[in-house]
Design a protein around this nucleic acid. Sequence first.
DNA 1: ACAGGATCCTGGGGGC
DNA 2: TGCCCCCAGGATCCTG
Length: 273
Amino acid sequence: MPELPEVETIRRDLEPRLVGARVGKIWTSGKPLRLARPLDVRALRRACEGRRIVALGRRAKYLLLTMEGGARAVIHLGMSGRLSLATGARLPHTHVVWRLEDRPEELRFVDPRRFGNVTALAPGGRLPELELLGEEPFTMPVERLHELLRGTKRALKLALLDQSIIAGLGNIYVCEALFHAGIHPGLPGAKLSAARAALLKDAIVLVLDQALSNRGTTLRDYVDGGGQVGGNQLSLAVYGRDGEACRRCRKGRIRRVTTQARGTFFCPSCQTR
DNA sequence: ACAGGATCCTGGGGGC
DNA sequence: TGCCCCCAGGATCCTG
């Protein structure tokens, strides 16, 4: 599942190879994509075709392909989405292809489960889901994080997945950050002390930094902009490790519980309420 | 305000 | 070996 580190790794891989390229014809599979809205092919062609790419940016888990003149394609990878520059035969489940003029490679969006989405924006165009996003984890002041978490009775596990509170975390890194901070995932946000909020903020930055230097976590589908798997799965302390001994306290066994139909992994011994 | 469930989709894993 | 069933999960929507 691409979360912030995976999306950022793809961005760093692809941006230098894309900037300056002029988009040729766009091809789409015609299959409906999920998340928010169906693909508007005409709007995507209007935004991209014949224009040069000036940037590949990122906001939370969204990639922003920015064209000269300011039109953008907003790409969310969902669960199984991949974005890559490639030549040759297209993979099954390729849904959007940006051909590039004078280049053999084409930019491809591949998504077997179609939980992802591609949206075109005209210059200055706004997207509700982008407007509603909270701050980026690396630059968010700890006081702001604490203030927002204190304002909800929801369990921290759920509050941290809420993209309007903090943007870019998903199931894996929320579990990992709570583990590194020594905080029980079921602790209500309203009960988080300032001291523990600081621990949590540091833990979030730590797990994201580590995942970035490992080029993302590959459990099943994720690959980087060059089609290679990441290495951070080897560094996970709790996610997917239910039944194993806790790496920190060595007393507890990692437990898996289900919250909101999502696996939550934690050490009942050293993650406290 | 929040919990809990359903929804979308497919490849892969478990069970038999 | 093969087949069926179930399940993961990001975001969103709905009900209680």
